[in-house]
Amino acid sequence: MATENKYQKSIDRLNQAIGKEIATTLQYLYFHVHFEDDGYEYFSKMMKQTSITEMFHTDKIADRILFLQGEVEMMPSFEPRKIRDVKEALEFSMTLEQRTVDSYNEWARLCAAEDDQITHKLFQDLAKEEEEHLDMFRTEMENMLNYGEQYLALQSIAHSKEITKK
């Protein structure tokens, strides 16, 4: 008879986190390739770097699951949305990050209550990094609202100049 893993609740939460991280990795990669194609070089690079960071989060979480002797479930929690509008992409990204921060804070609290301090700290650390993403997206949204279409036009012009240098 197999014994129940005393960390199964943490493992389940960690696997939910993996689903979020994989899904956001794919979403931000989708934004990267389309913004790059549209000539929005800065947005493209920002989304690519954020996607890579989300992938590293997946790796950290998977390591913790394996240490707890759990099974890593590599299933995205949602399919990437086909959003091509920069403002809409930023709005969606802010929503994703806020939901993730909220989840990680809650899961950190629950893990602490269950005497799993290491997973508690992992969720706290990840929440902090997700808040940094949220802050970055908020700043970009403020720039879009303050400078309007000019903000995107300047990125497109800078991209065009870069291409002509090649």
Rank of each mutant, 00 (worst) to 15 (best):
I157T: 03
Y28I: 09
L154T: 10
Q124V: 13
S77F: 08
Q8M: 11
L66Y: 05
E132Q: 08
T58A: 15
E36P: 03
L110C: 08
F35T: 06
K6N: 00
M144T: 06
T24Q: 02
E162R: 13
I11V: 11
T139C: 01
S103G: 03
L14Q: 00
I118N: 12
L14K: 00
W107A: 01
Q49D: 15
Q124E: 15
V86I: 14
N146A: 15
K60V: 06
K161L: 12
E131K: 03
E129D: 14
D12A: 03
V86Y: 01
G70E: 05
Q155H: 07
A113C: 04
A2E: 10
D102E: 13
T53E: 14
Q150K: 13
L122D: 03
D85F: 02
D102F: 03
V101L: 05
A2Q: 10
Y40V: 07
D37W: 11
N146M: 14
G70I: 03
L14C: 01
W107T: 02
Q150F: 13
K165E: 14
T139W: 02
L154V: 10
M136D: 05
M46I: 07
Y40R: 04
F56N: 15
K45R: 12
N146Y: 12
H57R: 07
A158I: 00
I157N: 02
Q8N: 10
Q16M: 01
A2I: 10
L110N: 07
K161Y: 12
Q124H: 11
G148E: 12
T164N: 04
D116T: 06
T119H: 09
F137Y: 06
I11R: 01
E114I: 03
K60W: 01
N105H: 02
H57A: 06
Q69R: 10
Q98D: 12
D85G: 02
T164R: 08
M144L: 14
V72D: 02
K60T: 08
T164G: 00
I163S: 01
N143W: 05
D135I: 04
E4M: 09
T25A: 14
R13A: 12
E97R: 12
M94P: 02
